[in-house]
């Protein structure tokens, strides 16, 4: 049986751990608490921790008198499109890298992976000029198109596809199936869990994107949520409880994602080392 007695040292360590848990949770708690306070209660010399009259007024105001609904909608469109297009282009090439022995495969693979070394910031000026000449500035398409070539997605999918036994494919070949059918009916269904990782990473990546939408979108109503929230401070100055309500609303999708896909997100990071 396990002993339930703690030594003094262990007790100290547990206390330190608890302290850090509280420190880490506090800012988010404070975001919610502030958002439930009235403006007068936030900007005051008489400090109170809990809201004396908890209110959703700031949330109502955020929804009715700001563009937050549009911004959320825009971010959804941008992230969904980025995610879908990423899958459409990443999955086939990952399959090719994993299972098809074609000439120049290795060189191509490294050329693609080399893209991970290019910081996006290097591309902003030429990309802006490119989209300017397409006439796509100030459109949502401009916000997601440069974000869909995700080499890390290829890497994750390729690793997974390589683990699918080739016997399955060979059996299908003998039965006269074409590559396309094998890909659509064997590889894609078997690779669902790796696909989920790529979906989540590309969605969160696109949702959190800031610099590029800041550059390429000019109209307030077309902002993505990250740009909108960053602009809040300029337009709503000292309305901190409103700003915090907006920040809380803007985080709902991520919280949802985290609750349902926690393991996938963490596994995705552990295998790919992707950093936002």
């Amino acid at each position: 049986m396990k002993k339930l007695t703690f030594s003094k040292k262990q007790l100290l360590i547990r206390c330190i751990e608890l302290l850090f848990i509280l420190i880490w949770v506090f800012p988010l708690l404070w975001m919610v608490i502030t958002s439930l306070k009235l403006e007068e209660e936030v900007i005051t010399r008489t400090f109170s921790f809990w809201p004396s009259h908890p209110t959703f007024a700031n949330y109502i105001k955020a929804f009715t008198s700001t563009y937050i609904v549009n911004w959320m909608g825009n971010s959804f469109i941008v992230s969904l499109m980025a995610m879908l297009l990423t899958l459409i282009i990443d999955a086939p090439i990952a399959y090719a890298f994993a299972k098809i022995r074609f000439k120049g495969r290795n060189i191509l693979f490294w050329a693609v992976m080399g893209g991970m070394m290019v910081p996006f910031q290097v591309l902003i000026v030429p990309l802006y000029l490119q989209f300017n000449s397409f006439g796509l500035i100030n459109t949502l398409a401009a916000a997601y198109l440069p974000r869909i070539a995700l080499p890390i997605g290829i890497f994750i999918l390729k690793q997974f596809y390589e683990g699918i036994p080739s016997d399955l494919e060979e059996a299908a070949f003998i039965d006269g199936a074409s590559r396309y059918r094998i890909f659509a009916q064997i590889i894609l269904p078997l690779g669902q869990s790796a696909m989920a990782t790529v979906i989540i990473l590309s969605f969160i990546n696109a949702w959190n994107d800031f610099l590029w939408p800041l550059i390429v979108i000019n109209d307030t109503i077309k902002y993505t949520i990250t740009v909108g929230i960053a602009n809040f401070q300029g337009t709503h100055g000292t309305q901190y409880s409103l700003i915090m309500a907006g920040a809380a609303v803007a985080s709902i999708p991520q919280i949802f994602f985290y609750i349902f896909f926690r393991k996938k997100i963490i596994a995705g990071i552990a295998t790919s080392g992707m950093k936002g």
Binding site: M31, T226, A247, A250, S251, I255, G276
Partner: peptide, 10 residues
């Protein structure tokens, strides 16, 4: 998992 702008405004 929170976006950079949310974290920064917070």
């Amino acid at each position: 998992i929170f976006s950079m702008t949310v974290v920064s405004t917070l």
